[in-house]
Design a protein around this nucleic acid. Structure first.
Lengths: 97, 97
DNA sequence: TAGCATCATTGCGATTGCGGAACGTTTGGG
DNA sequence: CCCAAACGTTCCGCAATCGCAATGATGCTA
């Protein structure tokens, strides 16, 4: 995380980061409601986390055409890159200590 | 982090968690000033992070007797347990996905 | 098609964290 | 014996987040 800050990568809150990880690791359809339940947080918190993550283009919203009340959270290239970089930094730090 | 939240473990901010990890992984004397430099954050942020971590008894302050202006951040049993639990949860989640 | 349930979002007030500056304490040099 | 420097903390204003409640949009059913 230190290195992430120093590199100018966005410093996400725990919940935002958790959400990001969950979307990229769990291979399933992700809605606001579902994420709120899975991650044990309120729906508004999910909505705002998606706003924040969307600003960096780490995830994208797409309305579910089968049920236009819901949205589907989609992965992006930039999100993958961010997590990849993050993983590399963790690995490097792990070797350092 | 998900599991941590569900288990009622404190949800620390990125900086707080980073600080905790740094104190437990880097084997050296830790002062406020030193942590602020190492972790690239302001001194007030370090002070407040120590307040928060201290509330849970994850770290403790101890005035440096060689230089009473400084404090030394010390590890605790509860901090070790927390990190251990956290590590186990990460491992378990890793297997799950 | 009318009405209720469900979904995501948005106000709102309260809480929390942040950085910069000011403060009190302690140290060490002149 | 001062006084400047260094240390950690506190004060202050700002920005971001949170949960709850209300809102708008969509789906479902009788």
């Amino acid at each position: 995380m230190v290195t992430a800050l120093q590199k100018g990568l966005p410093d996400l809150t725990s919940r935002q980061f958790t959400l990001l990880l969950h979307v990229y690791l769990k291979d399933q359809a992700h809605t606001v409601r579902g994420l709120a339940e899975d991650l044990n947080m309120s729906k508004p918190a999910v909505t705002r986390a998606l706003d924040r993550l969307g600003k960096y283009d780490f995830v994208r919203r797409k309305t579910d055409e089968n049920d236009r009340r819901s949205i589907l959270v989609q992965r992006t290239i930039k999100g993958s890159v961010y997590l990849r970089e993050f993983g590399d930094m963790v690995e490097q730090y792990a070797e350092e200590v």
